[in-house]
Nucleic acid binder design. Structure first.
Length: 274
DNA sequence: TGCCAGGATGATG
DNA sequence: CATCATCATGGC
């Protein structure tokens, strides 16, 4: 992997098999990226606008310096993890081997904890297009405008100060109360996100489950996608069926430490490969 | 119109 | 501990 600056744009030389931007940003782990009319991938993370294209050999990020990328997005895109090694291990399993052939370029993003928590709170009994719309509205209404018509994700303090009537126009349905409870717990210190990051996995789960509206699925998604826990394994009712057909005796525990990555591969494999 | 969507909750066997 | 109705909303 090699980074070079070209005027105001940044080029990252990396084979698309090792890191697939489109698969990574469109596999359901984040909700703020979309494809533009020009065929670019555009979204917001860490309060910054990311506008990118990818070819077989390199990624181009508009208006970004090498320093900024190293500081803000090297870790975000999980370039510190040795996916090559992980895939070698997962390849010993026939199903995961096939999954990797479909989506071996997926990385698990290191997103902001609060954004992930709120996003997956909204995701319950919901579909991805509507989840994206709700989050977009939430940002437009309560997030800081970082550029013309581009908004950061709202802070916990901002959301905590809202009432249910403030959220009426967002279209969250019954989830609005969950969102407020979550934001208020974080804002007043009853829930400490840093503590969840530091805690052992069972304790981290327990802490998350104290919030109304955070069940088993949302907790696992938050842990994997927002709290840097690759061991977490979000399994919904649909995924349970899939796992049962592929692994009638249960998902192989020998992949436990890479379960999160494995799930990402499996997920995308099922979505695109059958 | 009815059904579904990356579920969670509370009540009930 | 397993099952089940219910929850609010938009898309099809």
């Amino acid at each position: 992997m090699e980074l070079t600056e070209d005027r105001k744009d940044l080029r990252i030389r990396i084979p698309i098999e090792d890191f697939n931007l489109s698969d990574t940003l469109d596999c359901g782990q984040c909700f703020r990226f979309q494809k533009t009319a020009e065929g670019r991938i555009r979204g917001i993370a860490h309060g910054r606008i990311l506008e990118m294209t990818q070819s077989k050999e390199e990624i181009l990020i508009k208006n970004m310096t090498k320093t900024e990328f190293d500081l803000l997005f090297f870790e975000y895109f999980d370039f510190n993890r040795d996916y090559q090694k992980i895939k070698e291990i997962l390849c010993t399993d026939p199903v995961l081997k096939q999954a990797i052939s479909y989506a071996g370029g997926i990385h698990v993003l290191n997103q902001d904890s609060f954004e992930v928590l709120i996003s997956f709170l909204i995701s319950q009994n919901n579909n991805i297009p509507r989840i994206k719309k709700s989050i977009q509205k939430l940002c437009e209404a309560f997030g800081e405008e970082i550029a013309d018509s581009d908004f950061a994700f709202p802070t916990a303090q901002t959301l905590a100060g809202l009432s249910l009537s403030d959220l009426a126009g967002i279209g969250l349905g019954y989830r609005d109360a969950y969102l407020l409870d979550c934001a208020q717990r974080i804002s007043d210190g009853r829930l400490d996100l840093q503590e969840i990051i530091r805690a052992e996995l069972p304790k981290a789960r327990e802490l998350l489950r104290t919030v109304k509206g955070i069940g088993p699925k949302v907790a696992e998604c938050a842990l994997l996608f927002g709290f840097r826990r690759a061991e977490a394994f979000p399994v919904d009712t649909w995924m349970k069926k899939v796992l049962k057909t592929h692994y009638p005796d249960g998902f192989p525990t020998k992949f436990a430490t890479h379960a999160g990555i494995a799930q990402q591969y499996l997920f995308h494999y099922i979505r695109t490969g059958s």
